[in-house]
């Protein structure tokens, strides 16, 4: 099962001829992702890692069945590329690019909602249905198949937690990176709902961080879930008023604090880890 993507998902890579696009195409292929094409305007007809390159998304779709697309496109041009995918009818769009202007992000999400496209990101590591399909940039070796759903706002921290899960014998159904920006396509609740329905997923790990109120909103849904949830919130030691890298990771006017998030999650019945490496043990207890 898994959510959003699986072993049958056909993927195209936008920006496949760039340095990152090329490197991660190779990595995704090595993971077993079905990449059926690349898009790079003016470079149609070439091949990258044996994958045909097209000039436009429309051209790729004339030649292949495309279920998902991943963007390795510089921020100033990302909106155009996203619009192309959405209007061409791609149903899952993974936007890895960081530093996209927030007004562009709002326009992308607005169009995606109207056309029924699921947007993962922007500023995400991507999405992995472990053992089946990886779309994005995480290192391959840590993602193995299993019953744990993972949903996260940040990237590298998620690799840390997934690696800990794998080392402790917990494989993953799907690992979803919502993205670190203030405006992203999916919310915690969107993904939690899918995990709750997914028969393969037995428990969920939520990786949050200070700032905003996404974790507080997630708590309202967690209260209704039948599956156990273990959470880790990064930024316990962060000072207020300072933006900790991510656009959203800032404590403003006393809102979005570590304490408030932990309280909301705990009162909803989730177990909360204080440090990243405590997650596997809490999960073991939750699954007893």
């Amino acid at each position: 099962m898994a959510i959003i993507i699986n072993e049958n998902t056909n993927v195209i890579v936008q920006g496949i001829t760039g340095k990152q696009g090329r490197f991660h195409t190779r990595q995704m292929l090595a993971y077993g992702t079905k990449i059926v094409g690349g898009v790079s305007p003016g470079k149609g007809g070439q091949e990258v890692e044996g994958i045909p390159v097209y000039d436009t998304v429309y051209e790729a779709m004339e030649n292949e069945r495309v279920d998902a697309s991943v963007l390795f496109i510089p921020a100033p041009f990302a909106k155009d590329a996203a619009f192309e995918n959405i209007t061409a009818g791609v149903k899952v769009l993974v936007i890895v690019t960081e530093h996209i202007p927030v007004h562009d992000e709002m326009e992308i999400i607005d169009l995606a909602r109207k056309k029924g496209t699921t947007v993962v990101g922007p500023n995400t590591f991507g999405i992995v249905s472990s053992g089946k399909c990886k779309i994005g940039i995480p290192p391959n070796q840590f993602f193995v198949e299993g019953p744990i759903g993972v949903v996260a706002r940040s990237g590298t921290l998620t690799y840390e937690i997934v690696a800990n899960l794998t080392a402790n014998g917990f494989g993953q159904s799907t690992v979803v990176g919502l993205g670190g920006d203030r405006v992203v396509g999916l919310s915690f609740v969107d993904v939690l709902e899918k995990f709750e329905k997914d028969p393969e997923t037995k428990a969920v790990v939520l990786v949050g961080e200070i700032g905003g109120n996404a974790e507080e909103e997630a708590s309202l849904y967690i209260k209704k879930m039948t599956k156990p949830v273990v959470a880790y919130i990064a930024g316990k030691s962060a000072p207020p008023g300072k933006r900790m890298g991510h656009a959203g990771a800032i404590i403003e006017r006393g809102k979005g604090t570590f304490g408030a998030k932990v309280e909301a999650l705990q009162s909803a019945g989730a177990s909360v880890a204080t440090l990243p490496f405590e997650v596997p043990e809490l999960l073991r207890n939750a699954l007893k």
Binding site: S154, G155, L157, A234, S237, H246
Partner: peptide, 21 residues
């Protein structure tokens, strides 16, 4: 560290062990 979340996680861990980032 690489990544904002990972950086925050690193700070939290250092503080946990009694360090001052």
């Amino acid at each position: 560290a690489n990544g904002a979340g990972m950086s925050m996680g690193s700070l939290d861990t250092l503080v946990h062990y009694g360090g001052q980032p």
